[in-house]
Amino acid sequence: MTAEACGVSLDYVKRVCAEGKKLSVGENQLAAKPSFFKSPRKSYKHAKPMTNLNDFNNDVVRRTVHSFYDNGQYPTSEKILGALHEKINYSDSQWSVRHILRNLNFKYKKCNDGRKFLMERNDIICFRVKFLRKMNEFRRNNDTRPIFYLNETWVNQNHT
């Protein structure tokens, strides 16, 4: 039946099974296990261009979530999807938006009244607040040193 289904000869199927038995006996000398063959397409991974956004679009997503809170609204994946469609012409599904939010370290946290809020990790929030305060201090003191933006959150993580 296998030979018919695959469109190959019976001898070919027997040869492949014999090779599989040789491999399973070689790995385990005590007893021959039945051979299992994986399809080469099983581990194939599809490209996901709609969830692999560049840094600019990731920042647009982050600012979009924060803008909902600034406007007194609760961000849902449906609302975020609509806003992203207007801003960056994003045309994928709500599940992709959820995947992007998870990649950006947003999580739903439960509040006391039972609602769930979309929140960023606390350490990221602390680094952002620290950065903004330092920038505000530099501007108030008319600091003339040049400022370089590295766009990497981990570069200055262990230094104050």
Rank of each mutant, 00 (worst) to 15 (best):
I100L: 00
V61W: 03
L10G: 06
Y12M: 14
K87H: 01
V8F: 03
M50F: 13
F131L: 14
N136C: 09
W95Y: 07
T76H: 04
F127N: 13
D55Q: 09
E78L: 10
N28R: 06
N158E: 02
F106I: 02
D55Y: 07
L132N: 15
Y74F: 09
I125L: 15
A47T: 12
M50Q: 14
F148A: 06
R41G: 04
G26H: 11
G82H: 12
I80S: 03
P34W: 05
S67T: 04
A18H: 04
Y108W: 13
R128E: 06
I100A: 00
N89C: 07
K107R: 13
F138K: 14
E137C: 07
R15H: 12
L10I: 11
A32V: 11
F127W: 05
M135F: 09
I147V: 15
A3T: 10
S24Q: 13
P40C: 10
C126Q: 15
K45V: 15
R41L: 10
K110P: 00
W154M: 07
G26A: 13
M135D: 07
I88F: 02
K38H: 08
R139E: 15
W95N: 13
H99V: 00
P40A: 10
H159M: 11
L150W: 04
F36W: 09
K22V: 11
L104S: 06
G26I: 03
N158I: 03
N89W: 01
G7Y: 00
I125R: 15
H85D: 11
K110E: 10
Y90G: 07
P146L: 12
E120C: 12
V155M: 06
S43K: 04
I88L: 01
I88Q: 01
H85Q: 15
R133C: 07
H159P: 02
N136G: 15
N156V: 07
N89M: 02
I80Y: 01
R41D: 08
P34K: 14
E4A: 12
S35F: 05
T144K: 15
E137R: 08
L84G: 01
K21V: 06
P75E: 00
L150I: 08
R62Q: 07
V8N: 02
